[in-house]
Design a protein around this nucleic acid. Structure first.
Lengths: 334, 334
DNA sequence: CTTGGCACTCGGGAACACAGAGTGCTAGAC
DNA sequence: GTCTAGCACTCTGTGTTCCCGAGTGCCAAG
């Protein structure tokens, strides 16, 4: 059905179109790539490819352009992920090495990825739900207020100021803190609710109101799923590209956490595999015309790159994979 | 030189141009606004205004468009800040009320402002340097690692993991923490270096290496000036507008913290006054074609709105002022 | 199955005309 | 002195037409 030469033609079309941004014709194809056949033959192959929906022509008598289906085949069968150059690798290393905390790691990563691919980078914060409690701190501020700080093994810190229902002595707070840490240290966040459920019963009656308030804040913090936070960078790189769907839609999607979340999350069954979502495969209509190259990193979070469907997939995939690996490494080390 | 009617003409030109986005001609002006003079008279006035550089015509035989100088006069003399509607005020209140921590306040503020003005909102994090130490926490993680947490009165939390040069017992850590808190509690961040300078001398010799490490991290945290962090939202609102300078430049400026910082900071001599920076008054060439309406909030931080020079200044100024006040209120309360 | 030739199609650019909006100027009216 | 009315002029933007060229599809021959 699709012999080797037809596939070669498709590959050539994708590569040429990506680099020139112009519909590619049979003559140019036969010339530039050494297919060793005449333009007429190429035309026949093109007709077959078009017949099957891999390419299309914007108008009669223009060259051919890959369809989403064509890109899909290209990504799945015809392309090889391109490894980064040594210089790029070193750049990644030095750029990420200076990060001081989790926030910083994420910020640097997203900028790095945007710069590297000259597209929009998207990074999800490491998932809270998969991490464990490293420490829980209660800091008395006044006799009615306590600063609550939850530290996880991924370096994430959540803090709240809690108004207590009644005054409570510092020593009682210290006791409460000790108990909480004793029963939560190293415990997965998802198990926290179970662990603390019977805690009030083990406390003196006079401490229970304060404990209840604090526990409710703790549970609330867990529920809030801060792993839904996603940051992006490189929006300026969109300015040049032209999308079938307006630029506005893309920017809107980027600022809409929910949309991004769904986009990134939708393919997380194989965490460390690169997933590519091309144009209309996209769940959100505003993002037709864009492709997403994403992968997991760290323990369950995801990062990726969003660009026009007409993007250089091998290079982009190489960059995403490399950055994900480096970041995972850094997160594991800290 | 510029009598009342000429000023009225300028005001009318600005208002019409802002609402229609088309050069405004003498006839339309005389009709729409009740100036009670003929188009010919308006034309004479326009000629005078153009002579003095307040308006210009894109080409001969097109209507007039305000220049930056014209907008400047309009903002300074001819416009009144428009207060928000009751509904808008309520929306602000409810939207900001749900914020749980400083991060959340900033995030909500920037989105709110973007939505309210339909432009790009820019918010600087409350300045670390102007706040005071509320609490400093040292949490032993292992016998060689300590989590360092600095809490300020603005609700900001800075944390670092510190590798100690040698093992140290928890009780020593606790002692160190107590000493640090004793001498730093309520102290302005700028005074911290002085306060801690002689601390190592007051410690037993065996604790000094650890203390030195911790202090160096503390000082480093202060130096890093996290008040330089700026977030923005509403980039999608740029998509519709057309700038003399490309959209790309604007997006680039927005992602370049340094540029934004300079932009916001440059006018901070009068913290709570609205400052307006119009088009070419702008320090950064990429932002010609845009105006910034900004003001201070909280204790020394700034927020604002960036849009095309052709913006509705009275409304935008009203929104910025109102949001700044509400946020200040919320920050003061917490 | 491949190739060369040929007629056909369509988009995009150049040339052109034209209507309409807006101006500047001058001469007269208040 | 200031305002108004009228008029000729100058543009831009739009619509039309025309033509070139790239690229195609098809067919017949190798």
């Amino acid at each position: 059905m699709l012999d080797d030469r037809k596939l070669a033609v498709l590959r050539a079309i994708v590569e040429d179109y990506v680099s020139t941004n112009e519909p590619v014709g049979s003559k140019a194809l036969a010339d530039r790539h050494n297919l060793n056949v005449s333009p007429a033959t190429v035309r026949n192959d093109m007709a077959a490819l078009e017949e099957q929906g891999y390419i299309t022509q914007p108008h009669t008598s223009a060259g051919r352009v890959p369809t989403d289906k064509g890109y899909r085949l290209f990504v799945d069968k015809l392309s090889q992920i391109k490894p980064l150059s040594g210089a790029e690798r070193r750049a990644i290393e030095t750029f990420l090495a200076g990060a001081v905390d989790l926030d910083d790691v994420v910020t640097r990563t997203v900028r790095l990825l945007a710069q590297l691919t000259r597209q929009v980078a998207v990074v999800q914060y490491p998932a809270l739900s998969q991490s464990t409690v490293r420490h829980l701190e209660l800091v008395p501020l006044t006799d009615r207020r306590v600063m609550f700080v939850l530290i996880t093994n991924t370096g994430r810190v959540e803090q709240r100021v809690i108004e207590l229902p009644e005054r409570i002595e510092e020593s009682r707070i210290a006791h409460l803190r000790a108990m909480l840490n004793a029963c939560l240290d190293g415990c997965g966040l998802s198990q926290v609710p179970d662990q603390v459920s019977d805690l009030p019963q083990r406390l003196p009656v006079e401490d229970r109101p304060a404990a209840a308030t604090i526990l409710s804040v703790l549970l609330e913090t867990l529920v809030e799923r801060h792993d839904e936070k996603i940051v992006f960078a490189g929006a300026a790189n969109l300015a040049g590209a032209d999308f079938t769907t307006g630029l506005r839609d893309v920017l809107e999607a980027l600022e809409e956490q929910v949309v991004l979340m769904r986009l990134l999350g939708e393919t997380s069954d194989m965490p460390t595999t690169l997933t590519v979502r091309i144009g209309s495969e996209n769940p959100y209509t505003g993002l037709r015309g864009t492709s997403l190259v994403a992968t997991g990193y760290g323990s369950g979070a995801r990062l990726g790159v969003l660009g026009p469907t007409r993007m250089d997939y091998p290079v982009t995939m190489g960059a995403v994979r490399a950055v994900a690996r480096y970041v995972s490494q850094i997160l594991a080390a800290s």
